[in-house]
Amino acid sequence: MKPFVYHQPKSIEEASVLSAKNWEEAVLFAGGTDVLGLLKDGIEEPKEVINLKGLEGLDQIDFTKGKELRIGALVKIAQIAEHPAIKQSFPALAQAAAQTASPQLRNMGTIGGNICQRPRCWYFRGDFHCLRKGGDECFAVEGENKYHCVIGGGPCYIVHPSDLTVVLQALGAKVTIVWKGGQKTVPTSQFFVLPEEDLYRENILKPGEIVTHIHIPVPDSKMKSGYLKFKERDVWDFAVVSVAASVRIANGRIESGRIVFGGVAPKPWEEETLNRELKGLPLKDADLQKLKALALKEAEPLEQNAYKIPLARNLMLSLLKELMPIIPN
């Protein structure tokens, strides 16, 4: 690891000031599970590392009944997986947390770091001067692209690696971003960006901006949510494909719902057409099959990743069947 200057600010303001340079200059560091990997491999070689662990008040989970769940950015993944109220009211989130990485990494990694982590594309992580690192080629396009995106890509074909983001978006979560002199709260659907919007970053954060909290509205009793993650190997692996859904069920129909896919696109992937189709859908197998044909309809797989499309569709169906009593044909 290249030596760096180390800061451990005591206030968000101080952290914001320290990090308000450019990305090459200073990097934010929370649990460090992702950043350390980047530093060790020389993918990022910042002059300064700003450790956020000293910031007060960001390590809390606050649950206001009937209102919202607020998770501080420094809350560990393991705390989310084990939190009784989250397990009770947001099972999809607890499941996603429990399926992230490995036990040790869940004890180390934070939710803030998880949603801000960099892509796992092996060209990005490897010794390749790729587009995302300022080069002029995406090596995945003509290369080994089994794990790359099938939709939303171009000119770079990463997938967003986080499990939690997929669920957060399905649950309608918002992210609070703070900087010196200001703050805003945005839905996750507006937090992540595609390569065509920003080739070098995966989200809207600017230098000096820090994610402090995640807010999740508390669902009513008719809402059900779930998460299915498909990975080749049960531990460590990021999702090959994952799907999160939250659906409101009333009178034998889906009243409304959101389906979000992970592992298929450079950001958590949500399709308006699919969500619209969910509205008023009867809980019948035949109707679900229609959904299947609709999901990822615009996908354009690369040479080695076409399997992700049937995989995502099958997972979606399995998840919906888990969440709802389906009437067979």
Binding site: R120, W122, Y123, G126, F128, F139, E142, G143, E144, W236
Partner: peptide, 14 residues
């Protein structure tokens, strides 16, 4: 990698 001849998964993750 067929185009560059470099190993893509020289670690315990990939």
């Amino acid at each position: 990698d067929r185009n560059t001849g470099k190993m893509l998964n020289a670690n315990f993750h990939d």
